[in-house]
Write a protein that binds this DNA or RNA. Structure first.
Length: 115
DNA sequence: CCAGTGACGGCTA
DNA sequence: TTAGCCGCCACTG
């Protein structure tokens, strides 16, 4: 059994991302903080990079702190990050999520739901 | 092994 | 308010 800490972290990221409701988005930092590694937001991006080949993980619902689609380069041209979000009625203009505060979802909300 | 690179974000000037 | 710095750490050449 190889207990690689970062592998577990990646797996946890995948699980959290799958819980983001359609039509909502969260941030790299919010996921990192929820998993107890507040200063490792960059690693969330790495984890999503691996998730790229797993279509059931909605990586397009993760944006940066400002609501910008900084990870758009990692999505196919045929179905871009922006298009995936639009399909869920999330407004995007110039890579910027509109009404970001309203669309933002935090993993912290899970505490309420699971109780 | 070492240096450079990032799907980030907090802090400082 | 904006721009730059730097801590973070897995991965690559």
């Amino acid at each position: 059994m190889s207990h690689n800490p970062h592998k577990d972290f990646f797996k946890n990221v995948h699980e959290v991302v799958q819980l983001i409701p359609p039509g909502r988005v969260t941030t790299y930092g919010a996921i990192a903080a929820y998993l107890g590694l507040k200063s490792s937001a960059r690693m969330v991006g790495w984890a999503l990079n691996e998730a790229k080949h797993q279509s059931h993980i909605p990586a397009h619902r993760v944006v940066n702190r400002q609501g910008l689609l900084t990870g758009k380069q990692h999505f196919s041209v045929s179905l871009s990050m922006e298009e995936r979000l639009r399909q869920e009625r999330v407004q995007v203009i110039n890579n910027q999520i509109q009404q970001f505060e309203k669309v933002f979802w935090s993993p912290e909300e899970l505490e309420v739901v699971t109780e």
